[in-house]
Nucleic acid binder design. Structure first.
Lengths: 170, 170
DNA sequence: TGGATTTCCGAGCATCCTGGTAGGAATTTT
DNA sequence: AAAATTCCTACCAGGATGCTCGGAAATCCA
């Protein structure tokens, strides 16, 4: 699969976010089954393995996955699928959610330099809040079940994933 | 003002969106007072005038502003400030809101090629809906009033903008 | 009529970001 | 020892970003 440039669209998520999310959902589906190698994931999702290495490095540094070297090694989620949100994944791969610098997450409010009563800041601020809330409200456990909570999915798998999602949900 | 590269942040709005939004809010604040020249706006907002020309061209093609040539000419909003949303502005300048190609606005749902029950699509779809709703829910009339609906703003201006916002709001 | 002003239009350009590839070192299992 | 796999760093081509520049066309005023 080659990347999708898809020029000139607003709020486009780069391949880092897209590939990384698929990787994490894949890991969630194999939760409890031991390590999964990048090679397996790359083949299953039809993604460039060497590129995934870069992405998974970011995910590991963010504390979202654990790697295990050597034959039979691979990656596992660092927490249960119900404890990792889409927001966690996106932030690890694409940085903090901030439409504009004046709306940076977790920073003290710094007023715009040029216009103290900047009206446009409202837009970016609301946007940042909205996006963060949406992403932080979805866990890998939900995503791993697929859109329609497909009927032909293994019952055990479904039950396991849902059970893991019971923890500290909002 | 030089551009703000601000590398590695998710959902970052480019200078097109940022400058264009400020331009439109500026026009909203001068609604009913005749044309405003780009020169005036560029000076007031401290933005490169030649660059604004490109942006305003996109806004005109999208039917959001009208231009008037010649001495004393300039731009005016094509509709009342209450009838133009932040979503209109962003779409005109940065394209349709679509985190991923499989979530394109206004297109028939096309399933992902590689994974029919693609779980990750849920994320991007929810994101697209959420962002669009947030942006389409804010009008230039509201933005033109500024964050705190500042007390020292001219009463007449405030009243005029609010009155213009009464039309077909949701 | 002749400027002055201002929108309109297209080309060009340096820099940064995107989406990878390549090569090798370290670690673990067999 | 050999295979598998993570881990790490460097590199690179192409596209997007964020502008600048030069000029043509319209409009107003003296």
């Amino acid at each position: 699969m080659l990347g999708n440039p898809l020029s000139q669209t607003a709020f486009h998520v780069s391949s880092r976010g897209e590939y990384g999310m698929r990787l994490m959902v894949d890991l969630a589906r194999h939760w409890g089954e031991g390590s999964v190698s990048l090679h397996t994931i790359a083949e299953g999702e039809d993604l460039p393995e060497a590129y995934l290495e870069q992405l998974v490095a970011a995910l590991r540094k963010a504390g979202l996955v654990n790697g295990k070297r050597g034959a039979g090694g691979g990656y596992t989620l660092a927490r249960a699928p119900g404890q990792i949100t889409a927001g966690d994944v996106v932030r690890a791969l694409e940085g903090p959610i901030e439409p504009q610098i004046c709306t940076a997450e977790g920073e003290a409010v710094v007023n715009c330099i040029h216009e103290p009563d900047c009206g446009t800041r409202l837009v970016w601020l609301k946007l940042q809040t909205t996006i963060a809330k949406a992403l932080d409200g979805m866990t890998l456990a939900e995503l791993a079940l697929g859109p329609g909570a497909r009927r032909d999915q293994k019952r055990t798998g479904t039950q396991r994933l849902q059970a893991e999602g019971q923890g500290t949900r909002n």
